[in-house]
């Protein structure tokens, strides 16, 4: 296990009944990075995170977080990690200052100033009652509660869900502040590709319970290429293009997205014999969507046993 990884999973697997939800996950989060975990709903992101946080027992495999086995986290380990689940849960009968007091009484290290500074950034007053806050403000309080305990690592499951743009910006700023150019680590799972592109330096993509991408964000961009092929039928089906992620249809052509293109890819494209085959630039979003859309069509989507080899 690499000492420099704050989270390291080793063939982490989880079944729900007969269904495999997370499969042989080898995932690592290096210290000081901001990692974005992407995937469709149901791809196993939340399950994987819960296993990493020790809230769910894996069926097989193990995971280490901050050097300790996820299943053996003691309170003194937990206070080094900030964790928030999607939904920004807070006790509805509390006021914002009660949330602060609750955090202060249950964490050994607690920074009041940090809490109120974060609150301020989201534009929240301490005396407000939680159930009168807007979604974005609740996210702010939830985030404040999570980072004020001075953790080394922040794990957020879908923190930007349902947030207005102003709150999203406040969230991004807070996360970047927290990361402090590599002093602390952040792992977020999200669907907001804008924010991911901005603040993450590494991304991971989960498809049907497996990790297909786990690398630096710029590396990812540089290793995905796309071509526009004029063809009446899906070139992905009749041609064998190595590294083909996904092909989707435009008005008169098909765009194929390929990972790690090499000479074999180019020759395969030639062999298609299509009328035209032009390389196209793609955005980060299109590259990610190629992976995610793949699972929608794939036959092996959420299947249990592997196909017979």
């Amino acid at each position: 296990m690499n000492r420099d990884n704050v989270i390291q999973s080793d063939r982490l697997t989880r079944y729900f009944g007969k269904r495999v939800v997370v499969q042989d996950l080898n995932f690592s989060v290096p210290r000081g990075s901001i990692v974005g975990l992407l995937g469709l709903n149901g791809a196993g992101k939340s399950t994987a995170i819960r296993m990493m946080m020790g809230f769910l027992t894996p069926t097989r495999g193990r995971c280490e977080i901050l050097g300790r086995n996820s299943q053996d986290l003691r309170p003194e380990d937990r206070v080094r990690i900030g964790y928030a689940v999607e939904g920004h849960f807070l006790y509805p009968w509390m006021k914002v200052q009660d949330c602060e007091a609750f955090g202060r009484d249950t964490f050994p290290r607690w920074s009041r100033e940090q809490f109120y500074a974060t609150i301020d950034r989201f534009g929240i007053a301490p005396s407000q009652k939680v159930n009168w806050l807007s979604r974005g403000q609740r996210a702010g309080v939830s985030l404040a509660s999570t980072i004020s305990s001075d953790p080394e690592l922040l794990v957020l499951d879908d923190p930007a869900l349902g947030l207005d743009p102003v709150s999203r910006r406040a969230l991004n700023e807070t996360l970047l502040d927290f990361n402090d150019s590599g002093a602390r680590t952040v792992l977020i799972s999200s669907h907001m590709l804008d924010d991911i592109e901005r603040i993450c330096d590494r991304i991971a993509i989960m498809v049907a319970g497996r990790i297909l991408v786990d690398c630096k964000l710029d590396d990812f961009r540089s290793r995905i290429a796309a071509w526009s092929i004029e063809s009446s039928s899906d070139p992905g089906t009749y041609g064998r293009i190595p590294g083909l992620i996904h092909s989707h249809r435009r008005s008169h052509s098909w765009v194929v997205t390929v990972a790690n293109p090499n000479d074999a890819t180019l020759s395969a494209l030639e062999q298609l014999g299509a009328v035209s085959c032009e390389p196209v630039d793609i955005t980060f979003e299109e590259a990610v969507i190629a992976y995610l859309a793949r699972s929608r069509r794939s036959d092996t989507f959420l299947s249990g046993a592997r196909a017979a080899s």
């Binding site: 069926t59 097989r60 786990d214 590396d219 083909l244």
Partner: peptide, 30 residues
């Protein structure tokens, strides 16, 4: 499914096949 070794033949679980579209860190150091 929750045992590392098969009860009958004692083999471990096989590593999954790569789908060919994986993008992982290269060995080049950061």
């Amino acid at each position: 499914v929750d045992l590392e070794h098969c009860e009958v033949c004692n083999t471990q679980w096989p590593l999954g096949e790569l789908e060919g579209i994986e993008v992982f860190d290269t060995n080049a150091s950061l």
